[in-house]
């Protein structure tokens, strides 16, 4: 793998209290190379969103805090840079698109002026900002970019707004795009278009993309590499193909089995995982998945496994080799 563009190393995020600290993200390491497409999959409470917020230092601090770790962007630790530099990085080198696009825009301003504002904040002249705004609105495939530019958010549909958000994120030609469930609020056909749009833009610009999602289907179609998170940790890392072909962690395997696929018999019982995702602030010793796991052994109750190599660039945090399942 070429040198990582963005490298998250041993990141810990938590809620410090007076006497103890609840750790919510417990040692996450992720490397992303230029042009790479990485999927981060996890359910609510798995720590995927907190990890991404910590990368751009948008955690609500306090109460949350980064307890430990580094976020290296091309050799520069973003957790150490000053506010000024940080403002240049956010929305500049690293752009973000969030789940609920309607709440990310100012309802009182035209779309155009909001994109221009972002560009000017990153040093573009007034004329350049205007020109670039027209350009990106065109790029994201909006039918009538000129009308969109002079519209207020409420005058546009959800799909159009999400395109606007992507246009805004792309306007500064970022090197990394973080998309946190950008399509969950959208309908399937529109979802599909947004996904294809980002993929085609990525092919043109070579930016790295991190897709954060709970939907394995989205991941299958979009990314080369997948990281699966559970209870604040990475439990499996693999190429997309390998993950779907031969999952190495019982959680991933169970998730895949629980989806009604093309081969699932009509109205047959779907595979249930049982139990519920654990509260990450109340974890006991051992593997946090063990209570829901069909393959748990004695050791799982005492010791939490680290990521163990499973060959073909795949790794899983599980004491048991899939061959023994």
């Amino acid at each position: 793998m070429s040198n990582p563009l963005l490298s998250i190393r041993d990141l810990h995020v938590g809620l410090p209290h007076r006497r103890r600290t609840d750790e919510i993200v417990r040692g996450v390491s992720i490397d992303v190379a230029p042009g790479e497409k990485l999927g981060i999959v996890g359910e609510s409470g798995s720590g995927k969103t907190l990890t991404m917020l910590a990368v751009v230092r948008l955690l609500a601090t306090p109460p949350l805090a980064v307890l430990k770790g580094e976020v290296m962007l091309d050799g520069e630790d973003l957790l150490k840079v000053d506010e000024r530099r940080l403002r240049a990085v956010r929305g500049g080198e690293i752009a973000m698109v969030y789940q609920d696009p309607m709440s990310s825009l100012n309802p009182l301003l035209h779309i155009g002026s909001q994109i221009e504002e972002a560009l000017r904040a990153h040093g573009a002249s007034s004329d350049d900002a205007k020109r670039r705004t027209r350009e990106v609105l065109q790029q994201v495939g909006l039918a009538d970019p000129e009308r969109v530019r002079t519209s207020y958010p409420h005058q546009l549909s959800g799909g159009m707004i999400q395109r606007v958000m992507i246009a805004m994120a792309l306007s500064t030609s970022p090197r990394v795009l973080i998309a946190d469930e950008p399509t969950t609020a959208l309908d399937v056909t529109i979802q599909r278009q947004i996904l294809e749009l980002v993929t085609s833009l990525q092919a043109e610009t070579g930016m790295a993309v991190l897709w954060v999602t709970h939907d394995l289907g989205v991941v299958a179609s979009l990314v080369d590499q997948v990281v699966v998170m559970y209870a604040g940790r990475i439990v499996e890392k693999a190429s997309t193909h390998r993950l779907f072909e031969r999952p190495s962690h019982p959680y991933t395997a169970a998730l895949l089995e629980s989806l009604p696929g093309l081969g699932t018999a009509h109205r047959s019982a779907l595979h249930q995982i049982g139990g519920t995702p654990p509260d990450p602030t109340r974890l006991s010793a051992g593997c946090p998945f063990r209570l829901r796991c069909s393959y748990a052994i004695e050791k799982c109750a005492h010791e939490e496994p680290e990521l163990i190599d499973r060959g073909d660039g795949s790794a899983a945090a599980c004491w048991r080799d899939p061959a023994q399942w």
Partner: peptide, 15 residues
């Protein structure tokens, strides 16, 4: 047909 084709299928080969 368009709806069906838009279903994300958890299978990279199918994709």
């Amino acid at each position: 047909l368009a709806l069906e084709q838009a279903i994300p299928v958890p299978d990279p080969e199918h994709e």
